[in-house]
Simulated assay, not measured.
Amino acid sequence: MPLHVPPAPAPALRSVLTALSSPTAVREARTPSLRAAQGPVSPDVPLPVHELDHAATEPAPATGAATKLIGWRFLIRCGERAVAAAETMLTPDGWAFSHFCEGPYIASAERALRHAEAMPQSYQPRLLSVPELYMLTLWLHGDRGTDAASGPLAPTDILVPLAPAPPGITAHRPHRAADLLPVLTHRLTPAPLLGSPA
Score class of each variant (00 low, 15 high):
P2C: 01
A10Q: 14
A12F: 07
A12W: 04
A12E: 01
L13G: 02
L13I: 01
S15Q: 08
S15L: 08
T18L: 14
T18Y: 03
L20D: 09
S21V: 00
P23E: 12
E28H: 12
E28P: 00
A29M: 12
R30W: 15
A36S: 15
A37G: 06
Q38F: 00
P40H: 11
S42L: 13
D44E: 10
V45E: 13
P48G: 03
V49A: 06
V49T: 08
V49C: 07
E51W: 03
L52T: 05
A55Y: 06
A55C: 03
A56H: 08
E58Y: 08
P59H: 08
A60H: 11
P61F: 11
P61V: 12
A62G: 04
T63L: 13
T63P: 01
L69K: 13
W72R: 09
I76Y: 01
C78T: 13
C78I: 01
G79T: 09
R81Y: 13
R81T: 14
R81P: 00
A82R: 11
V83T: 04
A84M: 08
A84Y: 02
A86Q: 04
T88N: 08
T88A: 04
L90I: 06
T91W: 04
D93P: 04
G94E: 05
G94T: 05
W95Y: 06
F97Y: 02
F97S: 01
S98C: 10
H99F: 10
F100A: 07
F100Q: 04
P104R: 13
Y105M: 06
A107D: 15
S108Y: 08
A109H: 07
A112Q: 03
R114M: 10
H115L: 12
H115I: 07
A116T: 10
Q121S: 12
S122Y: 01
Y123N: 02
Y123T: 02
R126D: 10
L127F: 03
L127R: 12
V130H: 03
E132P: 06
Y134E: 11
Y134R: 15
M135K: 00
L138M: 11
H141R: 13
G142Q: 10
D143K: 13
R144C: 14
D147Q: 14
D147V: 12
A148F: 03
P152E: 08
P155H: 03
P155G: 07
D157V: 09
I158V: 14
I158D: 00
L159W: 04
V160C: 09
P161N: 02
L162T: 10
A165I: 11
P167G: 00
I169V: 12
H172Q: 15
P174F: 03
P174Y: 05
R176K: 13
L180V: 05
L181Y: 00
L184M: 07
L184V: 12
R187P: 00
R187K: 13
L188E: 06
L188D: 07
P190F: 06
A191L: 15
S196Y: 04
